[in-house]
Nucleic acid binder design. Structure first.
Lengths: 137, 137
DNA sequence: TGCTCATATGAATAAGTATTCAGATAATGG
DNA sequence: CCATTATCTGAATACTTATTCATATGAGCA
């Protein structure tokens, strides 16, 4: 038995809160990542939560592309693409290489690449289960 | 050589758009998942993009918890937790089991579990690189 | 030098989203 | 039953975010 009992109270931010399984609450709280780390992770997920940004990143999985090609691939205006790319660049998810007046963007974050791979794998998997959706655009 | 040339135009939604590498634009567009699938994936990422929801899901990685324990673990009001859980439930990311007046929630989506695992692995990895942040809440 | 094109930016609007509070529902114990 | 407790819900507020349009920057080219 622990110093906390089930069906008791737990101290949260100084004040006490009623809980059902106090031991597990304490244990899970101890395993919870730091607030700052969770905020960072949430930010990354947030950047992936927009269909247009997601399209941009999927397009970049195979290698770099310039802004106008990215706009064409993702079906958005070049201005919208540029805004989106700026956001992604600010979070170091993509990097830009300038060649004359063109800017070539590429995926810079292997962690994001993994998340994209998981998402795409899931999409393909559901395609197999539910082939009523056409996989191409 | 393809029917499209580099530095040409590509048809997008009926109207033509200037591109630099027309072949790649066409190729990438063909590999792009369906809009609906991308929207679904973006939705899932969006659900993971809030720190409080992320905390809820991380807490559920080890098994089910009731609403008041989830509120305690994640440091939010029970009302806020309930709202968040409702959203997650609506998207079938968690499921609820009722036992009397308590509701026990659990992670229901293995795909989301994978995404959480990737995110947590990344957090732990950066912890090792930058130990200035304390891993516990 | 002046013109055009690729990209970037700012500001404004519009749309979406989180959080809170008050109250509703429904189950338990007395 | 009545009071209490756990959870849920709706509506209001405040906040964040996407999208657009107009314009700026800056490179190549005539």
């Amino acid at each position: 038995m622990n110093k906390y009992s089930d069906n008791g109270v737990v101290a949260v931010d100084g004040c006490t809160v009623k809980v059902v399984d106090a031991d597990r609450v304490v244990a899970v709280r101890e395993r919870m990542p730091a607030a700052e780390d969770l905020a960072d992770a949430a930010d990354v997920f947030g950047l992936l939560s927009d269909p247009n940004r997601l399209r941009l990143l999927v397009a970049l999985l195979d290698g770099e592309l310039c802004v106008c090609d990215l706009a064409a691939v993702t079906g958005q205006s070049e201005s919208a693409a540029s805004h989106a790319l700026r956001l992604l660049r600010a979070h170091r998810i993509v990097t830009a290489r300038r060649a004359g007046r063109m800017a070539y963007y590429r995926l810079a974050d292997p962690h994001v690449r993994m998340l994209l791979d998981v998402a795409l794998a899931h999409i393909e998997h559901t395609e197999l289960l539910h082939p009523e959706r056409d996989g191409t655009a």
